[in-house]
């Protein structure tokens, strides 16, 4: 894999204490996830062990070790969303895409994730697709949105 981008990320952080999390965040931004090779390189450059780096990366929910789907569907599971039916929302998304949270569809078009709370509690339940927050979702509504994305993805392919 191409590590030149990683080298550029690491440059300003060399010798700076407490920079590991920021480095991991930038790496994930660029590569979409944290490949093993990148983790080893980070350890080498920051003068620590791969064990230490993986320990930190695996502690935080934000970091992934597998590539993400093209469209990331996040279903919020905060308290407000929960009492307004987020579990049914998540089930319907899972049923529709035939994948579990943390997985991606075979064609790589969708990935599903659960998030703890995005702070849009007043508009619960919410579903976030990429950066767009969809408020006041119902299972039927959610399926419609997913169908629309699917259609537009197909036309793009053509």
């Amino acid at each position: 894999m191409d590590l030149t981008k990683l080298k550029a990320i690491l440059e300003p952080y060399k010798g700076q204490k407490g920079s590991l999390i920021a480095v991991l965040q930038k790496t994930q931004e660029v590569y979409g996830y944290l490949p093993e090779e990148a983790l080893r390189e980070i350890a080498k450059e920051l003068g620590t062990t791969a064990n230490e780096v993986y320990g930190v990366a695996s502690f935080y929910a934000q970091f992934r070790f597998k590539p993400q789907g093209k469209n990331v569907v996040k279903v919020c599971e905060g308290t407000a969303c929960h009492v307004r039916g987020s579990h049914r929302l998540l089930e319907s998304v899972q049923d529709y895409l035939h994948i579990q949270p943390g997985e991606i569809t075979p064609d790589g078009v969708f990935g599903v994730e659960r998030v703890a709370c995005v702070g849009c509690c007043a508009l619960a339940p919410v579903m976030i697709i990429n950066e767009d927050v969809h408020a006041g979702m119902t299972p039927v509504e959610a399926k419609k949105i997913l169908t629309d994305i699917e259609k537009s993805e197909k036309t793009q392919v053509k």
Partner: peptide
């Protein structure tokens, strides 16, 4: 920027997280 861990709202955990 935190990286998603509820326990980091606890002050000693938060400081550990700032330390990377």
């Amino acid at each position: 920027k935190g990286a998603g861990a509820f326990v980091c709202g606890e002050e000693t955990a938060l400081m550990a997280s700032i330390e990377g």
